[in-house]
Every structure is written in C-alpha cells, then in structure tokens.
Design a protein around this nucleic acid. Structure first.
Lengths: 186, 186
DNA sequence: AGTTACATGTAACTAGTTACATGATTTC
DNA sequence: GAAATCATGTAACTAGTTACATGTAACT
C-alpha cells in the first residue's frame, strides 16, 4: 500500500464529509468556495483527485445518487476507518513544530473539534496549543534578542509582527481555554 | 521558454542572494536552517533544484569557487534580470487576495524591503498592506455576522481568532506606517 | 440557440519532500 | 580509521495548479 495521504486538504475533506454526509464533491467545492479564509482552492483538479485518494485508502466510500435528473452525483460518506483517522488527526498533541508549520491547520482542527469530540477535547487541545505557542514564543524572542541589532528597520519590524501575532494567538488560546474550563466544570 | 518560477522560495532565494552574494547553496541552506520562523525547508532537495531553475531563467549566475580545499563550491550572484525580478516582486501592490494567500510571504517581502529599496518603498508597502488588511477584515467580519449563529463554539472561537489575528496585523501595519511617515518626513 | 447551474473528471505541468549518493578535508 | 563538517546533487514520490473536456437540464 502507498504511503497514506496526510495532507491538510485530505483531513479538511474528512472533517467536512463528517458534517455534511452524504455529500458530493460539488457540495464540498461549494463549501470551500464560500469560505473567506480560503485555506483551499475550490478547483475540481484538487478536490476530485483528493476524494479518489481517500476512497482508495478506504477512509470514505461513495455511492451513485440516481435521484437527480442532472448528471449523476457521487455521494461520499466516512467509513469507520475514516472516522478513526479524523479522530487521530483531531486529537494529536500539539508541538512547537506544529505551530511553526502553520496555525491555519490548527484552527481548522479546532473548528471541527467540539462538534466531533466534545468540549473536553477542546480543553485538552487548547491547553496543548497554549503550551506550544509559549514554547515557540520563547525561542522566537531569544532569536529576536540575538539578531535584532543586525537587522534593517523593516526586517526588525517584520520579526516584531511575528512575535506579536504569536502573542495574540497565545492570549486567545488562554481566553478560550478559560471559557472551556468554566463550561466543563459546570 | 517554460513558465517563470514564481514560488515564494524562489523570491526568498533571490532576496537572500542579494544580501549574501556571492554565496553558495550551502550558505543559503544554513541561513534557512537558522531561521526560527522556518518558512522554508533547509533540505538540499528543495534548494539546489530551485537554484538551478533560477539559473536556467537567467536570474542568477554561478561560478565555481576553487579557492577552497573542500569540495568545490558554486557561488551565486544576481544578474540584472534577477535584480529586476526581485524588485518587481517587492513592489507589487498588495491586494486582499494576497493577504488571504498568506501573510508570511508579505512579511518576507517587507523584511527585505528597506535594505533593497529604501524607506519610501516601505511606506508605500505598508499603506498598501494596511488597506488590504482592512478590506480583508471587512469581508471576514461580514461573513462572521452571517454564519456565527450556525457554528459550534469551537468553530466560532476559531473564526474569532482569525479576525483577531488580522486586527493585530492591521494595528501593527498602522504603527509601522506611522514610524516610516515620521522618518520619511524628517 | 445561448447561457447558467449542476456535476465530474483528466492531462500536463510545477514544485516540494524524503532519502540517498558522493566527495574532500579536518579532528578525535 | 571513524566521525564530523563542508558541499552538491539526484531519484522517486506526492500533491497541487491550470486548463480542458464532458454531460444534463432549466431558463431566456
């Protein structure tokens, strides 16, 4: 068997199929097209091949919908294996390197999380994210101290903006964590 | 001629070669490896092929350095065409869709900007960025108003974090713009 | 008859990843 | 002589992009 598909797009599709199933590639494209954060292209050339890969890996199954009078629709559903794969992705502990690789993937995970796995899982996620952000901030500030003097003003400001962005996200994570802690205690 | 290489990596290399020239692929790898923001992999499999592409497009030229006793080094320099291509990338006006595609590329551009094109260019850049961020924020807030009620708490919080991140970056842009305006007036 | 909306798919190309291969010199 | 450091390169694979091709039905 080929190496499993671990791209963000695949997990985004898995999470979305979970919410919309049974749904077609066209439905999924439409959903992506309506997103202002546009993490993914809504082009057919990315989504249909990705769905084929998911089906080859048995994470989804498709059936042909004949009820429509238009061109046949292929309707996708998660398999148990697909649900498990989604759950594993959603509950992965967050390391500093994940923060580095990209916050958008983490926010995507979080936005699926409560509906898929409940408020406790959100609390765990946010605690892990908060720690990872703090760790990343520490090393970024260290780096900043070391090289700041060598940088041009614009490079210094750009780095400063990176620090400020992580700080903002760390503050958000703590606020959100607080909200879940209160809710989960109650 | 093949389609020109417009990847962020290529422009990152162009900008870095400008600063370090003459420099080798190994120097560039070392630079990337030392960056805590890690926009790029420091693997040889990405950098050396990218340098070959840049040389095929005549944006850089390489010479063999024989002074070393180690394995031969290939030293890169920008060509006039390469300088122009870098300048075009640096001065591109910023649209909302660029903000959407990714802030990291924009911060990379900005960090090269003052050294390459001066403080006036930074002012122009920040004004354009600020407008693009405001535009993006408007449409994101519109979207938020429309769909907020339909979202789970975690999805709502994730969206809120996206808005807050853009707000933070917009505030940073205005602060930095102010700094340049003062400096450029003086 | 032409456009729009629904709906799926492929081909050609580009570029990135990991892993591997190579080669020279210095240091332990 | 083994390992670390300097230094470049390629092969196999994965996945994304754009552009194109196809098909059905409703509306104008």
């Amino acid at each position: 068997m080929a190496t499993p598909d671990r791209s963000v797009l695949s997990f985004a599709l898995l999470g979305l199929i979970r919410l919309l199933q049974p749904c077609s590639g066209y439905d999924l494209r439409g959903f992506f097209a309506g997103q202002p954060m546009a993490l993914f292209s809504d082009s057919p050339g990315s989504i249909y091949p990705a769905l084929q890969r998911l089906e080859r890996s048995r994470l989804v199954v498709s059936t042909i919908d004949k009820s429509t009078k238009l061109r046949r629709r292929r309707l996708y559903r998660l398999t148990p294996k697909g649900k498990e794969s989604l759950k594993r992705w959603l509950t992965q502990p967050i390391r500093a390197s994940d923060v580095l690789r990209g916050m958008p993937e983490l926010f995507l995970r979080f936005s699926y999380l409560e509906d898929a796995l409940g408020a406790r899982a959100c609390e765990t996620f946010l605690a892990s994210l908060s720690a990872a952000l703090d760790e990343q901030l520490d090393s970024l500030r260290d780096h900043q101290r070391v090289i700041n003097a060598k940088l041009s003003r614009s490079a210094r400001l750009a780095l400063q903006s990176g620090v400020a962005t992580y700080e903002g996200q760390a503050a958000w994570a703590k606020m959100a964590l607080d909200e879940y802690r209160k809710a989960n205690r109650g």
